[in-house]
């Protein structure tokens, strides 16, 4: 399959490990991954903060960048993010229509129909749950809100993780509770966000996991930022980074600030 990758702005710039792993994983599974260089961002941050006018050019760029999927040039678009996929599916056409851009909205709908979050692509489109990964560490999984509720990915990420060889997957208590990120919510309502984060990190620490994983780098940045500040000794990895890990090319444990406050890079 020819699969176009929307890397997401935040991962492209701050967390390149997630899209890199997505590329490695999909190529290992025998697919061609295309990275259209005109891509930038899906527009979610602008839309969710109320700057819909400012979102229009961002959305237009995304839709035009990925429009070839609607014409069959690629078979699918994959996004290693639940919330960006959610924005593509539930917001982009609305933004276009609000701006009176009905043609663009129609293209947006057509692109959205072939756009998948990573676990959806793997399980539903490619039909795999065992991707041949090896990751011999204790891991807990946070189902991010938009993956869980906006997309309804359900058990897909867990099915993928359970099939990983030698993984010690432990359940996260109150997993479905929001981590308090919410995009600009973390800045506009920093105190409330921090209170929610504290409960989430306490639950993560309680699992004894070495790694917290999720399908969204933005939520992981938030929870990871909290764990790091607490010197919790728990690192974060995107789901793709665990699924990309093999015996011959293992994904390293992430840096995790711990009580000793020293750099800890385990292999």
């Amino acid at each position: 399959m020819r699969i176009a990758l929307a890397a997401t702005c935040i991962a492209d710039t701050l967390f390149p490990g997630a899209p890199r792993a997505t590329v490695r994983l999909l190529e290992r599974l025998g697919h061609d991954v295309v990275y259209p260089r005109s891509q930038a961002c899906c527009g979610q941050m602008h839309i969710n903060t109320g700057y819909v006018d400012e979102a229009v050019p961002v959305v237009r760029n995304h839709v035009q960048t990925f429009a070839p999927v609607a014409d069959g040039e690629w078979d699918a678009v994959v996004i290693p993010s639940g919330s960006c996929t959610g924005s593509v599916r539930h917001q982009q056409a609305m933004v276009c229509r609000r701006a009176g851009l009905d043609d663009l909205a129609a293209t947006a709908d057509a692109v959205a129909a072939k756009t998948y979050e990573l676990s959806e692509l793997l399980v539903d489109v490619l039909g795999v749950t065992d991707v041949g990964a090896w990751f011999p560490h204790r891991v807990t999984y946070h189902p991010t809100c938009h993956s869980l509720r906006m997309l309804g990915v359900g058990e897909r990420p867990l099915r993928l993780l359970r099939a990983v060889e030698d993984i010690d997957l432990v359940e996260l208590p109150e997993a479905e509770s929001c981590c308090g990120f919410g995009g600009t919510f973390a800045l506009k309502n920093a105190d409330t966000s921090a209170a929610m984060l504290a409960d989430k990190t306490a639950n993560v620490r309680g699992t004894g996991a070495e790694v917290l994983t999720a399908g969204d780098m933005s939520c992981l940045m938030h929870i990871g930022g909290g764990l790091s500040r607490e010197r919790a000794g728990v690192g974060t990895l995107h789901l793709a980074e665990i699924l990309a890990s093999t015996r011959s090319e293992p994904t390293a444990l992430p840096r995790a600030r711990s009580g000793a406050d020293s750099v800890e890079v385990a292999r």
């Binding site: 967390f15 899209p19 504290a198």
Partner: peptide, 14 residues
């Protein structure tokens, strides 16, 4: 105030 921020990587994904 309550979270660390990762420093940008040496190399972007792009």
């Amino acid at each position: 105030r309550s979270r660390d921020l990762p420093a940008p990587p040496k190399q972007t994904f792009r």
